[in-house]
Design a protein around this nucleic acid. Structure first.
Lengths: 327, 327
DNA sequence: CTGTTAGCGCCTTCAA
DNA sequence: TTGAAGGCGCTAACAG
């Protein structure tokens, strides 16, 4: 900046003013400065600027697994609103490891991010509490805060699961299997609640023998689905709590030639092309990111105390039916 | 830091030394400092540190479309090696817009990133040239440099397309349709070359009437595939240059009940379950990110001039066949 | 409209 | 082993 100033024959302060579009600079001076900037290929040092003005112009985004399209879409949504606001995004991946999450959050705080959006991996969110982070704004995505207060954006897990299950019941299914991820996960628990509630509403009760929870991956889901379908009293439909489990179930029904109807959470590519009766609770993953971004930015710009403590935004699900009109 | 120093009754300099694991601090002093750090919940200000020591401990990652699993996997790979090295990743999405890319790259440079990995959107890469970026290390991913020199990591687009096409020819196909993305894209051009070369090797020549290039999305691919399949001399197989085009082709064959064999680039979930004859050139998208990360880090740490100017790393493809043993 | 002074929080250098 | 001085590049506050 000193070099630019020298070349334009002004003070560094004037260069600084031109670069921030300060109006109190004469047109001629501005021109000279801009020319010097151009000629020297000068670029303002953002690190130094930030040290002076505070903050960093960055927000942190911590997700559990970027390989899951759900989280990459979420990241895209965050990206969008951040870009509109001229904020940069520091992206971190925890691989569902709590200690790694803790370290990354710590790093982000040290990097002076202006706020962060976290998909929390583990049970305790103590390291995200406002006193630990010195009041740095935090928004949780996809899982609610535990043992602390924070804004969060959730999917309507309960409602979606309920709607899907109800739809199966309305189709006449009375034995509906359940393939679920670990119940320790919020989404797992909520979706199970929805499944159960839909049964209760219809005066039914699920058969515990048809319930398999704690399935970690596609292969486990496939095995569990196969085991259910090979029972003497097999379920006539399977409800799967996420896209990977649905895929496992699809494999199992295909392999066994079993006629079970499938239902699940999360839409996926080519679902329409499978030619299977498939009912899905779908939702807009980008929207979770966008909402989280907006909540965070509000929190960052609002006067402390002017916003409710822990706001909660719930993204609705939509019922999608595929292949039910095909043989 | 001053507060910590006061509490530990040492100078700020000593605190700084403890925090950087400088050995020349007595055990007792170190203990006292660490205790003070703990009690005050002190966290070193990375912005200030970086102003002093230079650099930023961050690398920039610019992708064209994070919603495409290919790029989110690439991002994951970059993330991995960055994390190992204690580097943070600033993630940007261009949506294939060249001017946006230009702006983001400029921002990253201003943010003092230590280097960047870019999936370039457009034709000219002038804004990524080393003189524009003042020698900041740049690695290109998935598309080669144009009009400049830089390290890059590519997929074996030619070889993959050639292998897939050859496999179709060996299956006896003589009329193989081609559904391609815009030829202006490097991958599009290379994959077309591979398709053509496999024909030449076999003493064949593709029928230009069976070639459709410049397809932007799934819907266009579906229409193009349908048009080809409804010709009086329809192709007996279709080669699609990416996963979205393959999906369009699948839709078309399903809708028409056409028996065409399909082949494509990029593996995808549930490909095995479709029950269609499907041959794919698959590759490890994470690996592209990891390699790009490693090349970048080498470039960042190597003495200028000690490394070859423009290194090129090519990720191999693997031939995968699905459903060919099914009716 | 433009410049001077001072300091953001840290670390390199030099001195004790 | 510890501390004091000075400055990284920028900008707020205060002249003029």
């Amino acid at each position: 900046m000193r070099d630019v100033a020298a070349r334009a024959e002004v003070s560094a302060m004037t260069v600084s003013r031109v670069l921030k579009d300060d109006l109190r600079v004469s047109g001629a001076t501005r021109e000279r400065v801009l020319r010097a900037v151009e000629e020297l290929g000068y670029r303002r040092n953002e690190t130094a600027r930030r040290l002076r003005v505070g903050g960093s112009g960055m927000i942190g985004l911590v997700v559990t697994n970027l390989a899951n399209p759900f989280y990459s879409r979420l990241a895209l949504g965050v990206q969008e609103v951040a870009y509109e606001q001229g904020l940069r995004v520091l992206l971190c991946n925890t691989g569902e490891q709590v200690d790694r999450e803790r370290g990354l959050v710590e790093d982000l705080a040290a990097s002076q991010v202006d706020g962060m959006i976290v998909v929390p991996a583990g049970g305790s969110h103590r390291h995200l509490a406002s006193d630990v982070l010195r009041g740095m704004p935090v928004v949780l995505a996809s899982r609610p805060p535990a043992g602390m207060e924070a804004d969060c954006v959730l999917v309507d897990d309960f409602g979606g699961a309920e709607a899907v299950t109800r739809s199966l019941i309305e189709d006449g299914h009375r034995r509906i299997g359940f393939l679920g991820n670990p119940p320790a996960l919020y989404t797992g628990a909520e979706r199970f609640r929805g499944y159960w509630a839909a049964h209760e509403e219809a005066g039914l009760e699920p058969d515990e023998h048809h319930v398999r929870r704690g399935l970690p991956d596609v292969a486990a889901a496939e095995r569990a689905a196969a085991a259910l379908l090979e029972r003497p009293d097999p379920p006539t439909a399977l409800f799967c709590t996420n896209n990977r489990l649905t895929q496992g179930a699809i494999r199992a029904t295909r392999a066994l030639g079993a006629p079970a109807a499938l239902a699940g959470f999360d839409d996926f590519d080519l679902a329409d092309v499978l030619g299977l009766p498939l009912t899905l609770a779908s939702y807009d993953a980008d929207e979770i990111g966008r909402r989280a971004g907006r909540l965070l930015i509000e929190r960052m710009t609002a006067a402390p105390g002017s916003l409710p403590l822990a706001r909660r935004s719930v993204v609705p699900t939509e019922l999608i039916r595929y292949g039910t009109d095909r043989p």
